[in-house]
Write a protein that binds this DNA or RNA. Structure first.
Lengths: 199, 199
DNA sequence: TCCTCAAGTGTCAGCGACTGTCAATCATTG
DNA sequence: CAATGATTGACAGTCGCTGACACTTGAGGA
């Protein structure tokens, strides 16, 4: 577990976020598909080849921040108390997302990114892929918890479905928040209350 | 609403499924990413350009059948009785999927396709995209139903989340069925029973 | 001080998905 | 038979992305 990273990694991160900022403004202006990697690289002042040394693909630029948030959720879930009902643990692990929506500055930025994603089928696909990966991570966390509680009879399908259901609530609230950003938290709570499993 | 389509469309469909069959066997042999469109076209006996006249992208070949199944689910849901609880309607609209898993011939074919999808990140993304589209369609169907029952107070976020939860059950059962195809139906029922909303 | 080594970069060449264009072909219809 | 419209192949081009190689630069040791 490395916290900050070496000096080299820090400067690498700095370049990455410079690229990301530049690219995002281009995407917002012209759209994702209409912006070529060459243009981004030129705007940053580097060759196309170097762009691909910082990001494995054009898609990744957009999801730079989301990746970190996603990891945060998984570690949060793992840190919840063992006795807490799983549904509540899932809800609590979503808190960082709600906090981002509460902070106006982050909200503005995230909304811009979401607009970019919604307008590009390719990006939507990539986004859903990340969501799927998040679900796998959350499922593993819950399964590991079940083991630690020495519940041998845990039904993997049910856990997977429950995580999927919770993430569906998150996704639905996010879509809803596209129209009314303030309503994210309330929407999420309504959805998760309505879908709460009986057990 | 056209049922069969004109003679031209029928022959077009025939060519499409010939391409699809050829492509699938190539994918199964060498993998999706490792098979070029040129190879597929050559194997079918046409130019690459013509391939793209039948399929908008290389991805689409794989999802030819799934698309139809998806439409089937949406129309099924719309046809369920108004009084039926939404969760039950969703479960019933999934019946065609269960039936496919029950039929050994279809199951074999679908399992092959699923293996292809699972081995390619790009295809997984495309698959999740279709699932998302299915969710949109199902959500619309349920919302339309609420209108017909003249329930004005329907919470769109909750409906969206509920559909998402049901589809999460479907997805979880599908993943589970990758290991044990016979267990699809049981897995789906366990998941949907466990996640059934209280209301 | 000079040499060396490693990291970062630019250039170039190439692959594969996909698109636009145009001319040739083929079947249909009058 | 001639005109028309749909289908096709051939070709050229764009864009995302990768591999190979040469160059620069800055840090550290001889």
């Amino acid at each position: 577990m490395v916290a900050g990273g070496s000096l080299r990694e820090v400067s690498r991160r700095a370049v990455q976020s410079r690229i990301a900022r530049t690219a995002e403004s281009l995407f917002a202006d012209k759209g994702f598909e209409e912006t070529t990697v060459d243009e981004i690289a030129a705007a940053v002042g580097m060759s196309q080849r170097s762009f691909f040394r910082y990001f494995a693909s054009k898609d990744e630029v957009v999801f730079e921040g989301l990746e970190r948030l996603s990891e945060q959720l998984a570690t949060r879930l793992a840190a919840r108390p063992l006795e807490e009902p799983e549904w509540d643990s899932l809800r609590r692990s979503f808190d960082p997302v709600a906090e981002r929506f509460a902070d106006p500055e982050h909200r503005e930025h995230d909304a811009a990114i979401q607009r970019i994603i919604d307008r590009s089928p390719r990006l939507l696909a990539a986004y859903l892929c990340r969501l799927e990966r998040l679900q796998r991570a959350l499922t593993e966390a819950l399964l590991a918890r079940a083991v630690r509680r020495s519940e041998c009879g845990t039904d993997e399908v049910v856990v997977r479905a429950m995580v999927g259901g919770a993430c569906a609530c998150l996704h639905a609230a996010t879509l809803h928040a596209a129209e009314d950003p303030e309503a994210f938290g309330r929407g999420l709570d309504r959805a998760m209350t309505a879908l709460r499993p009986a057990a």
